[in-house]
Design a protein around this nucleic acid. Structure first.
Lengths: 159, 159
DNA sequence: CCGTGTTAGTTGCAGTTGCAACTATAATGC
DNA sequence: GCATTATAGTTGCAACTGCAACTAACACGG
């Protein structure tokens, strides 16, 4: 018995990155299913939609920053949304590399119909926790996120 | 002012599924980078490896259950690992549809070299929390996971 | 202005993933 | 013992993703 402390024996069920990934996938695919079935949206598209509904007129790069998506993903999501007439893309007057993205009325409507669904799901999920617990959980989640960004790739052990 | 309560206005930054997804992606890609660069493993492969190191002799389906991967993903991960001689695949005597999966010595060694890396990363990540906070966080994570499994697809509002 | 470098966004290609169809084996019912 | 149904695992195809190369537009120094 008595395995070396940091030696072998790592159970996935107790490995935080694994648990985060499983939860995130469970939740995301539950939501993605709903977006897709009902509104023909992918998750990236929903993210772009959500950001633009709150802050119209952003450029693709700005959307990328706020959604943690890379520019290719944003570009494709925007193309899809534009084709479906959910948003308009206009070249910026001052800098014609940029485009100014705004939801159409139809895009805005889709957003407004999804929000209650998304909220309802989230509410049912976190009903598992008391409001205090939830607040605490989210705080820690935020701290872990900051730390994860700071750490960068594993094994680049310069810490 | 005073928007309708469950009406518009949903900021991604405060939307739990989104935050989980960002954190999980940050962490997973940090680790994936390390696995890939150093050992030529993908994340699914690492998961299969980790399960088999702890419980040799499982079938592909059994591995799937313990890793929350679907059978196609398992199949491909296993194929890759077998090609790299990290594991052996033998038809089960009693039921020749099944195969019995066992790590080779080389597979076991890879596992043993990854574990400390994985642990080190995890340790640096959760250093953000005190041990008590961490324990609490993981409990809640577990509760949320159970709830998420229970809920199923969003919008199938039969709850 | 004109070359050099930089930034915004798109596109091509290669690798991955997921779903459905398929093969092979096993279990069940008559 | 044979037809039906179910299960384990693989494979084909289509969609998605990520990276690198590319185009277009701007910025800046000479």
């Amino acid at each position: 018995m008595a395995l070396p402390d940091n030696g072998p024996a790592l159970d996935l069920e107790h490995f935080l990155p694994y648990r985060l990934s499983v939860l995130s996938n469970t939740v995301s695919s539950a939501l993605a299913g709903a977006y897709a079935r009902r509104f023909g949206l992918t998750i990236p598209q929903w993210r772009v939609l959500a950001v633009l509904a709150r802050t119209p007129g952003l450029s693709a790069a700005a959307v990328g920053e706020r959604t943690a998506m890379d520019k290719v993903a944003v570009s494709r999501a925007v193309t899809g949304l534009a084709r479906a007439r959910r948003l308009r893309r206009v070249l910026a007057a001052k800098d014609r590399r940029r485009s100014v993205l705004t939801l159409t009325a139809s895009g805005q409507r889709v957003y407004e119909r999804i929000v209650p669904l998304a909220r309802a799901y989230e509410r049912r999920l976190v009903a598992e926790l008391t409001p205090d617990e939830r607040a605490q959980f989210e705080t820690w989640l935020g701290r872990l996120q900051k730390r994860a960004w700071l750490l960068g790739p594993a094994g680049d052990s310069r810490v």
